[in-house]
Each structure stands twice: as structure tokens, then as C-alpha cells.
């Protein structure tokens, strides 16, 4: 649906096609979380099947989620002195077979 789409809003396209993209992209998290009411989810399904721009952003949403899950934790392992102090506390509190 771009500028040169030949037909206006009251054509034969499914209702979802008429939901403005500016609103669709703000619903992507709710959509992916399954938090939309069924009628609204259906409108988004219809929209995303027809709209390249919104489908692209949805794909990017999924990519962001995947990339975020791959960010490694930093090198913030325990400082050796802190680690020793914590181990000491463990030995003291829970004397076992250490």
C-alpha cells in the first residue's frame, strides 16, 4: 500500500488493510505476545499479509528479540576478593563437605 495504490480506502480490500500502519507498528509487541483481542488480532493478520512495510517491521521486531537474546553478559564475574568473601560466608553458614 503505497502512494500509488490506485484505489481509495473504501475498496474491496479486507478491513485490516485500512488500519493505519502508524497504529499497526505500535501494536506489534501486543500482537506477538498474543495480548490483542481476537478481532483486533485478525485485523492485524489481514494487514500484515498485505503490507510489506509493516511485515518488514514485524520481521525486525523478531530479529531484535533474537539479537537481544544473544548479547553475552559482560566480564562482570565476581571480583576475586568478593568471591573469596562469599565463599567464606558459605563455609561458615553451611558447614559441609567443602
Amino acid at each position: 500500500m503505497s502512494d500509488d495504490t490506485p484505489t481509495g480506502p473504501d475498496d474491496e480490500l479486507p478491513t485490516g488493510a485500512h488500519v493505519p500502519c502508524v497504529e499497526v507498528v505500535e501494536l506489534l509487541t501486543d500482537y506477538l505476545e498474543g495480548a490483542l483481542p481476537p478481532e483486533q488480532a485478525k485485523l492485524l493478520d489481514e494487514h500484515l499479509a498485505l503490507c510489506d512495510g509493516c511485515a518488514t517491521v514485524l520481521e525486525q521486531w523478531r530479529t531484535v528479540i533474537r539479537l537481544a537474546g544473544r548479547v553475552p553478559p559482560g566480564d562482570d564475574a565476581l571480583d576475586p576478593r568478593v568471591r573469596a568473601a562469599i565463599l567464606d560466608a558459605f563455609r561458615h553458614d553451611r558447614p559441609g563437605h567443602g
Partner: peptide, 18 residues
């Protein structure tokens, strides 16, 4: 697309793909 356009609120140009 701006207010007043038949497709207001739809993409003026589609976002670049990754």
C-alpha cells in the same frame, strides 16, 4: 502519509529491509 491523504497513516515509503 500525512493527514488528508486517502491513505493517511500508511507508509509513505516502506522502511528499509534488513
Amino acid at each position: 502519509l500525512p493527514e488528508g491523504h486517502a491513505w493517511a497513516g500508511h507508509w509513505a515509503s516502506t522502511p528499509p529491509r534488513w
